[in-house]
Computed example of a mutant assay.
Amino acid sequence: MSLLFGKKENEVINLFRDHLNMVGQVIDETFKIIKLSCDEDCTDIVKTVRQKESEADSIRRNAETLMYSGAFLAQSRGDMLGLIEAVDKVANKAETVADVIYLQNLKIPDSLRDKYIKEYECSVESFKALATAVENLFENIDKSKNAVLEVERWENTGDGIERSLIKEVFTLNIELARKIQLRELALQIGDIADRAEDASDRIEIIILKMSA
């Protein structure tokens, strides 16, 4: 099954790339919040995160409109719609991480900041691999397959850091409510990579259909 048929399809592919770029910016902006020290304000960064997530939504809707108007054959259109929606959920989860910190005025203890950064880095790398998988789905299937495996590898690495981080959180001499907040933050960061893996699963299905 070929994914390229004409002008509309190429327009959608360009929108996929624009969408990936914007989702990547949402993830990167949220990462800035994780790196802030306890006495730094994240209000402006959160506003940027929300703005870029909204822009990602707009690009996704434009791509979906084009697909509903006839881009791609009917048997592949549903897969492509599902893929861009799955990628968009990665941005949604990154925005959730920003909101968890901002709305709860959550301060990451200095003793744990490096671990939160390392966990978030795994989510960043999982998304980068996902972006490579999506881009090469239209150009180089083998590279797309390899990138899908990279998404899974980074997600698994992040899971290990998440478990270690949560365990360490509950050894701290702080109030239980704050421990629960910090645990939630670790889980939400891990969910970014989980969402990336969900999207990469969709790519695997598309590749299997193309090979059938």
Rank of each mutant, 00 (worst) to 15 (best):
I101A: 03
E162I: 00
S126W: 07
A177M: 06
I206H: 06
A74E: 10
S37K: 15
E40C: 03
L187V: 13
N21Q: 13
A63D: 11
L112G: 10
I34K: 06
N14Y: 09
E139D: 14
F5L: 01
E11K: 13
F5H: 14
L176Y: 13
R50C: 12
A98S: 14
D110F: 01
S126M: 11
C38R: 14
I206D: 03
I205Q: 07
L106W: 07
M210P: 06
E125Y: 14
M22C: 06
V97K: 07
Q51E: 15
K118C: 04
S144M: 02
L15E: 07
I161Q: 01
G24T: 04
S2Y: 07
A196Y: 06
G70A: 00
D110S: 14
A129Y: 08
E197R: 12
N62T: 09
A212I: 08
L15Y: 08
N92L: 08
R50F: 03
M1H: 02
I141E: 14
Y116W: 10
S111H: 00
V151F: 13
A193E: 08
N136K: 07
R183Y: 05
G70Q: 01
S76P: 01
C42M: 06
I192N: 07
E121P: 00
M210S: 11
I45H: 10
C38P: 14
F127P: 03
S76G: 04
V26N: 01
R183K: 15
D159S: 09
R153N: 13
I180E: 13
N92F: 05
L185A: 08
T30E: 06
T132C: 09
L149E: 15
Q188Y: 12
L176H: 04
S37D: 13
A212V: 09
E175C: 05
E9R: 07
D41G: 09
G6W: 14
E64L: 13
S54P: 00
I13E: 08
D79N: 09
R202H: 15
Y120G: 04
S37A: 06
D57M: 10
I108M: 05
L165C: 04
K167E: 15
D28C: 00
S69G: 01
N140R: 09
K179E: 10
Y120L: 04
Q51Y: 12
I34V: 15
I203V: 13
M80R: 05
E119R: 03
D28R: 12
E135V: 10
K145F: 00
E125V: 00
A193H: 10
A56V: 03
K8W: 05
A56Y: 06
V97P: 00
L3C: 08
N146A: 15
R178N: 11
A129T: 04
